[in-house]
Design a protein around this nucleic acid. Structure first.
Lengths: 340, 340
DNA sequence: CACCACGCTGCAAGCGTTTGCAGTCCGACT
DNA sequence: AGTCGGACTGCAAACGCTTGCAGCGTGGTG
């Protein structure tokens, strides 16, 4: 028999399937005679019995599965998060179903639909937009969920992400300390909470430190991509003078800034310091190595998964918004203004 | 009712659940009166009915799910492959369950176990080793599978990967054309088919082109990592003189070579040309931008998934080993020996 | 006119588990 | 000695769907 069933085990152990079921399930095991339980366990072991989660799921309406909604796995920001989620789920015997929305709300909708039809017990969402109709619907249908990395307004669900404000402040302080007075921000899209939080934090930091500030020192990109970052910096540079440093909304945007430096023959860091956000892999191999704000992405994933599991198991510690600490990784893309 | 069941639909449409089932399933729809079918469809639509794949799976012993076994999602080589697999599966209504083995056979075994218990219909394996007991077992238990990126000896399953030999030849030819005569190879582990295939191809190419060759010009790393690559190149450089170029087993190993250049103050490309393999993202941002062999990774994923689906649906075109074409991306890490 | 074939629909079993309920047995208590 | 309670175990239904088989009515054929 390719896959022994509970019935097979029961027969082999000379008990009723119900008894076998109870013996096999850790929390009902107490109901059955210790000796019998042992025997069942042993037989199950011998036969190589593996419970069929599908059948179990049908009965219990649980699938031991959650959905993980990300924009694009190919974006280096996400693999660590995914990995973190999977690792945390694995401990609990859960599995993640991953979908890539490519940032398309339509696609997102159908994908979430398909996740739900697959009976996922909860959702980890990495695609939140500030205003997000789909999430509002989901909230109403009260399927447990947690947002990572970005959050949506008016959604109760827990959120796990980096402490954007602290991270940005780290970056700005670092640049100020190097002597920069005129620092610009190439922000991420205002449609994402991360974009606005970082922009706001940037504004606060420069003001607080008494540095130059004003709308001409901020530009917001339409996307979190290299291309958009490049476009952003171009626009910014065309609109103002004397900028010696830029804080990018994230590493991808920072890469776009690198491209602009190359195309305009601006020396980084001597003429323009750049700092990124996220510390994605291989940044230390860039020309120059990118100074950036490091974020514990894997931990974001594990924390999010754990929060979700708690929600599923009713252990409602109702932990809201976990903000994970960031740190600054100083590399070669920042230097005192005008070279040393 | 939160989730309308087939029964609900049937009742609402005034038919028996069996009829509703047939009407809803595209390939049994012909069995039911066109008018009735339409009605059922309409009602289902109205009620927002979504079939419960768990129940269906229980009955049909199909889960519409496959397992995807990779070493580590965090390795930039894999996201594109995963993405390809997912995209191809999505079309067919299938989903992938992803597991990370971290290269640990023990872990791999238990993870595959858990996949099987989740009733995956097939497996895409990206962790193949030349000698791979687990895969042999799986083959015996004849669960459909396909290997990507690496293959195992003695396994019948189809394989989808880059044309390693052609890719390496491209690299060697390129270097020869630049004037290099003494080219070394920092190979990937001999436990992986990719490692040995590329090493063999390298040997063939240098010989064929009449370049220097010999065992002192080849070193094989213990892992596909930056660290192992660095160790490999150090060892090689310590063992021989006059090497002006190296072909790395993959990009990660090439990165390790970069590290050695930095630590030994060897100028790349003027003193040492380096070429990688895979063309993972952001290589163009390195110092210097890495010349590498580009591989259609996403396509590897889609092709593999399609092959697996064919196997599942019995469309046994028995397509074996698909070798995808590679191309050379010339960037800044290669130059004529001794500078221009 | 009887019969058959065919198109459609309903019946019911069953996929592998879980679980409320009911039974059995035995030791202990009154 | 009779009864009660407790510890186990078995019974059977149910989860939502698919599918072989049988039933029904209709139209066509011999």
């Amino acid at each position: 028999m390719p896959n022994p069933t509970l019935r097979d085990v029961a027969d082999a152990a000379g008990v009723h399937p119900a008894t076998a079921s109870r013996a096999l399930n850790a929390n009902t095991r107490a109901l059955v005679n210790a000796e019998t339980a042992r025997r069942v366990l042993r037989v199950a072991e011998q036969l190589g019995y593996r419970p069929n989660p599908i059948a179990r799921g049908l009965k219990t309406a649980k699938s031991a599965t959650i959905g993980l909604v990300i924009p694009d796995l190919t974006n280096p920001l996400f693999p660590p998060i995914v990995r973190g989620v999977e690792d945390a789920l694995e401990e609990a015997g859960y599995t993640a179903l991953i979908v890539n929305t490519d940032g398309d709300p339509e696609r997102e909708r159908t994908l979430v639909e398909s996740l739900r039809s697959r009976q996922v017990e909860g959702l980890v969402i990495a695609t939140a937009l500030v205003h997000h109709p789909l999430l509002e619907e989901l909230q109403r249908s009260d399927i447990p969920m947690v947002m990572v990395n970005r959050r949506a307004e008016g959604i109760e669900a827990p959120y796990v992400g980096p402490d954007d404000a602290a991270g940005i402040e780290l970056a700005v302080r670092h640049l100020a300390q190097l002597g920069h007075r005129r620092i610009a921000h190439v922000a991420g899209p205002a449609t994402t909470s991360t974009g606005v939080a970082r922009a706001r934090a940037f504004g606060g930091a420069v003001r607080e430190l008494g540095l130059d500030h004003g709308p001409e020192l901020m530009v917001t990109c339409t996307q979190w991509t290299e291309g958009a970052g490049a476009a952003g910096l171009r626009q910014l540079l065309d609109g103002t003078e004397g900028v010696t440093a830029v804080v990018a909304g994230n590493d991808l945007i920072a890469l776009g800034c690198y491209d602009v430096c190359a195309e305009r023959r601006i020396d980084c860091p001597d003429e323009l310091s750049i700092v990124g956000f996220n510390d994605m892999p291989f940044l230390d191999k860039l020309r120059p190595p990118l100074t950036t704000v490091s974020v514990p992405n894997t931990q974001i994933g594990t924390d999010a998964a754990r929060l979700l599991l708690e929600a599923l198991h009713g252990t409602d510690r109702s932990a809201r918004s976990v903000l994970l600490p960031t740190s600054l990784v100083e590399r070669g893309s920042t230097a005192p203004p005008g070279g040393r």
